[in-house]
Nucleic acid binder design. Sequence first.
DNA 1: GCTGTTTACATACAGAGTGTTCAATAACTT
DNA 2: AAGTTATTGAACACTCTGTATGTAAACAGC
Lengths: 198, 198
Amino acid sequence: MAEDRRTRRSRRALGAALIELVLERGFTALTVEDITERADVARATFYAHFRDKEDLFARVTADLLAGLSERLAPAVADSAVGFTGKPVLEMLRHAREERDLYRIVLRGEGDGKPLQMFADACARATAEEFRARAERNAVEPRIDPELLARVWVGEQLGVLRWWVEQETPSLPAEEVVRMLLDLAMRGRYWASGFEPSA
Amino acid sequence: MAEDRRTRRSRRALGAALIELVLERGFTALTVEDITERADVARATFYAHFRDKEDLFARVTADLLAGLSERLAPAVADSAVGFTGKPVLEMLRHAREERDLYRIVLRGEGDGKPLQMFADACARATAEEFRARAERNAVEPRIDPELLARVWVGEQLGVLRWWVEQETPSLPAEEVVRMLLDLAMRGRYWASGFEPSA
DNA sequence: GCTGTTTACATACAGAGTGTTCAATAACTT
DNA sequence: AAGTTATTGAACACTCTGTATGTAAACAGC
């Protein structure tokens, strides 16, 4: 008794319909009936599975996050310190496969709650990592770890959003990671070949 | 016949009520009646001024943006090249004064449209600036200007969001700007006192 | 102050969407 | 094949929306 096939069919159809429609019209503009109609499912069936449309959206994004962390686990274990590298590359690949959903989430659809929660979680973890490094090396960091974490996360999300919004990516994932690493190590002014101005 | 005092009173009360309530319950959870009740205004009056709640929100944020660019104009003129400096400092000060609204916008409330539009506008302008610099110095940039722009904007917004969300800022605006400048010039690894890892 | 104009108000209304319930039917599992 | 479980369409009360009123109040200019 793994799971009834009808249940799976309905759930998947509704999830897929939601993604399609959010891309077309935006989350708030949608009605439950819009979704069930696209999914070719009765409205009553929707409520048999989900409380409301935000519930459906929450589950879809939760699944995405689960898929991401599953893929990230080995990469993170590899690169020990410093996230910019294998983990980021793996995330870009994941984003390429699930581009539609990434677009939706990164646009902040659905009140932006999933996005903000993800960003905050990343920032907290990153800040902790930075603090741990400072501790380990017995250095007083000149840059506040909290701020550094926000810089890092903001940078990643900004680039990721840009990358998934392009029709056909102007840069392959590997190039993006290379540039980000370069930037992190040498700074922005150096990277673009100029001296600071003001 | 500058403007009827009643009109101003109603508009302001509704705008203020919206800001309060969005912070308390989030934009989508609000009804027009919630807003008019808080503003102590009849519901019919709301519709005399605004089409719906997104219209009200759009005007409130448009005013904020207008205020920002007004304050930014002289600072941008000063620092000629390179935004990270006076303009950013001025923005932080503006954010401190209008913290509630900044929180709302940066959380992506109201479908995140104002935020995304602002971010995209910044990114386009920044990318153009980077390209112009490369042109001017006749250098082939090792980092894609488009990506660099997204990095920059993502970084600014990430830090800004963190900064306005704190109850009492852990760092004064001047410190934040100093660190951002430092980061931009020397890179992240150097800044935190460590060598790159992977 | 008076006067004509403009705004605010309370109320009512139709329409859309929500979330729930129910009995009949269809699809599934074992 | 039998028993279980999901889907369906219909009906329901409810909330919110956006519009349209006539009336009362507040306003600007003289």
